[in-house]
């Protein structure tokens, strides 16, 4: 039993990474209307940012903030120099541009930091034991940080003027424009937010495993799977589906092995697409 609970916990932590990155994807898809393939490499930027910040100050909090800010900046620059100029093009053009941005980011990180794996030097902490189950304090800190980030994102979306306008643009971008809603301020906030959220996912992934220029790209596919399972454009769906996929992957490891667990997220995605094409929390798109 303890074994399974341990798997569940590590599944939830893995799920937070997937859920946060899926949240970033689904926000961009809902508002800027294209699948952003640079999400993975923005995660990597966040992880390296946090690594540097942590090394410089020895504070995980400062490191995390550095990483999140680095991600927000990358998100904004990508919008300002690339996606803004392609806004009137098809979403295929935007997707291809985002793949290009992903490669550029990865190359810059590779040249700057080398390709060897790096780790966060964290003090070893003895896990607490609750019954037979070992609970790592770091996991709780990470979970708390993720919950805070999610709370901030949802508060911005649902409690602030800009969030209201972001949701309006997600519903009907053309109507938003003729209603006097400025696309540039909505997009600026969207990209800052999406960058910071994906960076946070990368930071958690980096702390839990290792940091390398390829890490984000490897995490991109499960993130897309979660965004689709949750219902594309649904922030709540992305997070729930991310947690679901994380847990399913971890719990299945004893049966299918470490190498094949990634396939499960796609199996889950296929089942959801076949049974409930709009995803768990997807909204029905009105015909227009």
């Amino acid at each position: 039993m303890a074994f399974w609970i341990e798997l569940l916990i590590s599944g939830l932590v893995a799920g937070l990474v997937i859920g946060l990155s899926a949240l970033s994807i689904t926000l961009v898809f809902g508002i800027a209307r294209f699948p952003n393939a640079a999400t993975g490499d923005t995660m990597t930027v966040g992880a390296y940012g946090a690594l540097l910040g942590h090394r410089a100050t020895n504070s995980l909090l400062v490191g995390g903030l550095t990483g999140a800010i680095a991600g927000a900046i990358v998100g904004f620059l990508g919008y300002w120099f690339i996606f803004r100029k392609l806004a009137q093009r098809s979403n295929v053009a935007l997707l291809v541009a985002s793949i290009g941005l992903a490669f550029v980011l990865r190359a810059i990180l590779g040249v700057s930091f080398g390709h060897s794996q790096q780790v966060f030097q964290l003090p070893l902490v003895r896990p607490w034991r609750i019954g037979d189950v070992p609970v790592h304090p770091n996991d709780l800190v990470l979970a708390g940080a993720c919950a805070t980030i999610l709370a901030i994102v949802f508060a911005i979306l649902h409690l602030t003027p800009i969030g209201r306008r972001m949701r309006a643009v997600a519903d009907d971008p053309a109507l938003a424009r003729v209603s006097g809603i400025s696309p540039s301020s909505v997009m600026t906030v969207l990209w800052l937010l999406a960058g910071a959220v994906s960076a946070s996912a990368g930071i958690v992934a980096g702390i839990k495993t290792v940091v390398s220029p390829e890490m984000g790209w490897d995490l991109l596919l499960p993130a897309f799977a979660a965004a689709i399972v949750g219902g594309i454009g649904s922030p709540v769906g992305a997070v729930v589906a991310g947690l679901l996929i994380g847990v399913v992957q971890e719990m299945a490891t004893p049966f299918v092995g470490f190498t094949y667990k990634i396939a499960l997220s796609f199996l889950l995605m296929l089942v959801v697409l076949l049974v409930r094409p709009r995803g768990l929390f997807g909204k029905l798109e009105g015909a227009r």
Partner: peptide
């Protein structure tokens, strides 16, 4: 046309 997922007040 309306912002379908926003409430009337939010619209």
């Amino acid at each position: 046309r309306e912002f379908a997922h926003l409430t009337v007040r939010e619209n």
